[in-house]
């Protein structure tokens, strides 16, 4: 199939950037979306034009590196996948595809489709952990954990930190990312001890990083490649209000 791509090109952080149109010819429907971009890039290089820069690594939907806004939806419109798992069979000949980077003040564009997501790391650094230093911990089976709690913690822990929630949110809010980590650790007995300080610190950092506020559109949940539920935002709200009231 042949496709028309409208791709955001931006040389560096300070560059203005613009949408550029490319033709993608003879695309095989078994290709992944990123493989389609590889083919376009190979053509560009042969023509002496600089290839389109985009983040990618594992190409199996778990590292969270790929970060493409495809036709206005993070990772494309298929549910529960990342852009690298999106296959071209979901497009048809003649389609026009808009490809843009994540847009958020907290995620400045570095080049083309690559953004700086280090704000997420700083949020984790401010509290997204259990302070268990290596060694000196009890036997793994010393504290049984009810299966529903542990399953729910796993649902929240599935987050790959890709930032699709921020990209999808009309307010560029990071509540789903933060809520997932706060909830995962608050659900487990090992994380309960620090739960109050954790939620206060993480939310403070989130606010300082200039993410927007949650106004309950739930676009984050719909865009999340791991389909993490907005119930974890509610849980974070609960955790936060409780902790703030106690302080």
């Amino acid at each position: 199939m042949n496709l028309t791509l409208k791709v955001w090109r931006q040389k560096h952080k300070e560059d203005q950037g613009l949408m550029v149109t490319y033709e993608a010819k003879d695309i095989n429907s078994h290709m992944s979306f990123l493989e389609m971009l590889d083919v376009v890039n190979e053509d560009l290089i042969k023509k002496g034009e600089e290839p389109i820069a985009f983040d990618h690594d594992c190409r199996e939907g778990i590292c969270g590196a790929c970060s493409l806004m495809i036709n206005g939806v993070p990772h494309g419109s298929e549910k529960g996948i990342t852009a690298c798992q999106l296959h071209m069979r979901h497009f048809k000949d003649g389609d026009v595809i808009y490809i843009e980077p994540w847009r958020a003040r907290a995620f400045p564009v570095i080049k083309d489709l690559i953004v700086d997501r280090s704000a997420f790391d700083r949020i984790i650094q401010s509290g997204g952990f259990v302070s268990a230093t290596t060694g000196g911990v009890p036997d793994a089976n010393a504290i049984p954990i009810a299966k529903p709690d542990s399953d729910s913690a796993m649902d929240a822990a599935a987050c790959i930190g890709c930032g699709a929630c921020v990209a999808a949110c009309p307010n560029a809010s990071a509540m789903l990312f933060v809520g997932a980590k706060v909830s995962q650790l608050a659900l487990l007995p090992q994380g309960k001890i620090e739960r109050e300080q954790r939620v206060l610190n993480m939310v403070r950092t989130m606010d300082e990083e200039n993410f927007g506020n949650c106004t309950n559109h739930f676009e984050c949940e719909a865009a999340c490649p791991k389909e993490i539920s907005v119930q974890y935002i509610a849980q974070m709200n609960r955790e936060y209000l409780r902790a703030a009231a106690k302080q």
């Binding site: 952990f129 259990v130 268990a132 290596t134 060694g135 911990v137 009890p138 036997d139 793994a140 089976n141 504290i143 049984p144 954990i145 009810a146 299966k147 542990s150 399953d151 913690a153 796993m154 822990a157 995962q184 650790l185 487990l188 090992q190 994380g191």
Partner: peptide, 22 residues
């Protein structure tokens, strides 16, 4: 064995039985 203990202490949500054990 110490690795499993360490990971559980960090909040790694390993699969569990209904008893609550790993």
């Amino acid at each position: 064995n110490a690795i499993i203990d360490q990971c559980v202490a960090q909040g790694v949500p390993f699969a569990r039985e209904y008893s609550g054990y790993l």
